[in-house]
Amino acid sequence: MEDGEPLFWDDSEDSFTFLGLYSSQQRAEQRIEQARTLPGFRDHPNGFHVHEYTVGQTHWAEGFLVGEQTDG
């Protein structure tokens, strides 16, 4: 993994908090360990996810949908 994006996901509120971009899996995991000691995050110690992205590449090129979409 060249770059990672650790996220905190709270299923009860269907939201997430972006912790940062890191140059390696190891650095992302170190940040997660730090965050697990903080208020709010410590209540959800297993709520962290790391997503891998390639730097210098376009993501979400076609936009995104919010809520239900209807044709017409």
Rank of each mutant, 00 (worst) to 15 (best):
D10K: 02
F8A: 03
V50H: 01
N46T: 07
Q26M: 07
S23A: 15
D14Q: 15
F16G: 14
T37C: 06
L7A: 02
D14V: 14
T70N: 06
G67D: 03
D10P: 00
T37M: 07
F8H: 03
V66D: 12
L21Q: 14
H44Q: 11
L19F: 04
E13R: 13
S15C: 14
D43T: 08
P39D: 10
L38I: 15
E68W: 08
Q30H: 11
L7F: 06
D43E: 11
Y53A: 02
S15M: 14
F16I: 14
Q30W: 11
E29P: 01
E13N: 10
L38V: 15
T37G: 09
G47M: 00
L7K: 02
E62W: 02
R27V: 09
E68F: 08
Q26E: 14
G40A: 13
E29G: 01
R36S: 05
G72D: 07
T54A: 05
E62M: 03
G4S: 13
G4A: 13
T54P: 00
G67P: 02
N46Y: 06
G56W: 03
S12T: 14
F48A: 00
L7R: 05
G56P: 00
E13F: 10
T70P: 01
Q69N: 13
H44W: 09
Q30Y: 09
S12I: 08
N46H: 11
S24F: 07
R31Y: 03
E52C: 14
V66T: 15
D71E: 09
A61F: 00
E29L: 12
D11F: 08
E13G: 06
Y22M: 03
V55H: 14
T37N: 13
D43P: 00
L21H: 15
H59Q: 04
E5N: 05
G40D: 14
Q26K: 09
D10C: 03
G47Y: 01
D71K: 04
Q57K: 12
A28P: 00
V55L: 12
P39F: 07
V66G: 06
R36T: 06
P39Q: 09
N46E: 08
E13H: 12
V50C: 03
L65W: 07
W9Q: 04
T70L: 11
H59R: 06
T37F: 05
P6E: 03
H44T: 11
D3G: 04
H51M: 13
T37K: 15
T70R: 05
E33D: 14
Y53V: 09
Q69W: 13
L21P: 05
E13A: 07
W60Y: 04
G56R: 02
A35T: 01
R27G: 06
N46W: 07
T17A: 15
V50L: 11
G56E: 03
N46M: 04
T54G: 01
E5A: 07
R27A: 11
T58A: 09
Y53S: 02
L7M: 10
I32D: 00
F64C: 10
Y22S: 01
Q30G: 04
Q34Y: 13
D11A: 12
D3I: 07
Y22Q: 00
H59C: 01
A35P: 00
W9E: 07
V66W: 13
F16Y: 15
L19K: 01
E62I: 03
Q30R: 11
T17G: 06
T17E: 08
E68L: 08
L38T: 14
S23L: 11
D10S: 02
P45Y: 04
L19P: 01
N46L: 06
P45N: 04
H49K: 11
Y53E: 02
R42Y: 12
